[in-house]
């Protein structure tokens, strides 16, 4: 990136790899996020989204490759890069014994926002996420949706221009989820801000500018949602054969249309004419059949051969469970 001419892109990721023991969490991932873009990383749990985000926010080093925040290398200039970033982690990182305002104030102090500006930003951000009435409540008493809103507010106290959100709506009810997105939309209207979100809720990325689909540490596709649907979507037939003979027969006959297998089901590329032909031909061989219209879900199926899957919980679950049970006054 040449200095002085066009400003460096908000985020640039260049052939990043990262290994944890035997698993390759990221395998040569590259992409660039444009200025003021609403960019989504979509993939199942364990795809490497969070690892990538941790590298972008400088808490994790890549094994190889380079990540740049406005041209600042996250490994060599982490402190400068962090000033530009506003981060909302997947798991709450608030101090739940402090009040809402105290949490924001602490963040401002830690990021070196001077006193008067800090107070003004806190009031603005509380108003934006509609928590003004809760300013002096202990964070512990907030619902999880409110906590997430507070964290979004917090990420913006230091006038960050790049907002990184890791699964901002995970674990929230539909109403809270919609609210989070509406705040993000409003923010993009009011401030010069670039947003990168990770999510495994496919329906949430429809409104993004571009979607980057990742799985098993690799980028599978990167484009606007509409374009993705056009190129990879296509109509699909999801068929569950009656028995093994039927399965073999169908697979043999339509090998050229095979898109993947998900559990019992077989996925075939399809169009309206094909549906009729298929039914006439193999109607007796199937237990059930679903026509899947083009959506990001089918894009994902096409690209990975699998539906978005869920995964089990992490390591230190025992300690956390203890803490959540009420744990210990040391907390």
């Amino acid at each position: 990136m040449a200095e002085g001419t066009a400003p460096a892109p908000p985020i640039r990721v260049d052939a990043i790899s990262r290994r944890f023991g035997r698993t390759l969490a990221l395998d040569g991932v590259s992409f660039e996020v444009r200025d003021r873009e609403f960019f989504a990383l979509l993939g199942p749990n364990g795809a490497g989204k969070t690892t990538l985000l941790h590298i972008l926010c400088t808490v994790l080093r890549p094994d190889s490759g380079q990540a740049l925040i406005r041209g600042l290398d996250v490994v060599r200039q982490p402190l400068a890069a962090r000033r530009l970033l506003g981060i909302v982690f997947q798991e709450a990182s608030l101090d739940d014994r402090l009040t809402v305002r105290e949490n924001l104030d602490l963040h401002g102090l830690v990021f070196g926002v001077p006193g008067a500006l800090r107070r003004r930003r806190i009031d603005e951000m509380l108003a934006l996420v509609e928590l003004t009435a809760w300013a002096d409540r202990t964070t512990r008493t907030l619902s999880s949706g409110m906590k997430r809103r507070l964290e979004i507010a917090r990420a913006l106290i230091h006038d960050s221009e790049i907002l990184l959100l890791d699964e901002p709506t995970a674990g929230l009810d539909a109403q809270s989820r919609e609210r989070i997105w509406s705040y993000i939309r409003r923010l993009r209207g009011e401030r010069h801000i670039t947003v990168l979100v990770t999510t495994h809720y496919i329906e949430e990325v429809e409104g993004c500018d571009r979607v980057c689909i990742v799985d098993r540490g690799r980028v599978l596709a990167l484009d606007a949602p509409e374009t993705l649907k056009r190129t990879h979507g296509g109509q699909m037939l999801r068929i569950v054969p009656r028995g093994d003979d039927d399965r073999r027969a169908i697979l043999g006959r339509f090998a050229d249309r095979l898109k993947g297998e998900a559990g019992d089901a077989i996925l075939l590329a399809s169009d309206d004419a094909f549906v009729e032909a298929f039914l006439a031909d193999c109607g007796r061989r199937i237990r059930s059949m679903t026509v899947e219209i083009p959506s990001l879900e089918t894009v994902f199926l096409t690209l990975t051969g699998r539906a978005l899957r869920d995964q089990s919980a992490g390591e230190s679950e025992r300690t956390r469970a203890f803490g959540r049970r009420g744990g210990e006054h040391t907390r």
Partner: peptide, 8 residues
């Protein structure tokens, strides 16, 4: 464990 450290 509860993430506050990460924020810092």
């Amino acid at each position: 464990e509860f993430g506050f450290l990460r924020e810092v």
